[in-house]
Computed example of a mutant assay.
Amino acid sequence: MTNSEKKDFTEILNKYHHFDDGLFLEFGFYYLAGTNLCAKATFYARDYSQSLNIWRKVTFILEDVSDFKSRVIGGESNVILSGVTIFQEEEFVCLDVDGTYSGSNRPSNILEVKENGVCYIIAKRISFSESEENPHL
């Protein structure tokens, strides 16, 4: 991840307050022709950079997935309680959802995520997109 990309991910996490109290809408995996495993995680959260109560869908695409875990219960609304964390370690990027960690309540490395994470994706590349407010999800 370049310095510019790190700044973008820091800004998106700050803009949505790490998606605290948002909804976890989608978590899935797929293959594109000629690629390794890809993952998609979509959240619905308040955009705190706006003065109005505006909510948006934010989708993260992770490419070349090397590891993942999900203890999310299907068929229920999944409110994000501890937040979303994105960080890079060596050539990997990690997206962690609602993990419970010591200290700052954010993971310090990928090994800690693998040991204590509830829902995470570890991959080589990550991107995101935001959609306009959608009151009907």
Rank of each mutant, 00 (worst) to 15 (best):
F128Y: 14
S127W: 05
E130N: 04
L37N: 03
N116T: 09
S70L: 07
W55Q: 14
S131Q: 13
E11V: 01
V65S: 13
V65N: 13
Y120A: 07
N116M: 11
N116H: 10
V97S: 03
V113I: 07
F60Y: 09
E115N: 02
F87M: 13
Q88C: 15
A123N: 12
S131W: 12
S104A: 08
M1S: 09
S66F: 06
I126A: 07
N78L: 05
P135H: 03
S49W: 09
S131H: 14
D8I: 03
E76A: 12
V72A: 15
L32F: 01
V93G: 03
A123W: 08
F87E: 14
T10E: 14
G22W: 13
E133M: 15
Y101G: 13
I12H: 11
C38S: 07
I80L: 08
F68W: 08
E5V: 08
S66M: 04
T100Q: 08
E130P: 05
Y101R: 06
C119G: 02
I121E: 09
N14K: 15
N116Y: 05
S4V: 01
N134Y: 09
T35V: 00
I61D: 13
N14D: 15
K15Y: 00
I86A: 10
I110R: 03
E90F: 10
K114H: 03
D64H: 08
T59L: 08
L32G: 02
I110L: 04
F29H: 15
V118S: 05
F68P: 06
E112F: 05
L111K: 02
I80Q: 04
L25K: 12
Y120G: 09
F19P: 00
A39D: 04
E5H: 07
F43A: 09
I126T: 06
E5S: 10
Q88E: 15
H136R: 13
I121W: 09
F24K: 01
K69Q: 14
A41N: 02
A33C: 03
V84A: 05
L25M: 14
N134A: 09
S49F: 14
S70T: 12
R106Q: 10
E90I: 06
D8N: 13
N105V: 07
E76P: 04
G74C: 10
A123Y: 07
T100P: 00
I61P: 04
L13R: 07
C119S: 10
R56S: 08
G75P: 12
E76Y: 13
D96R: 11
V113S: 07
A41P: 00
N78D: 10
A45V: 06
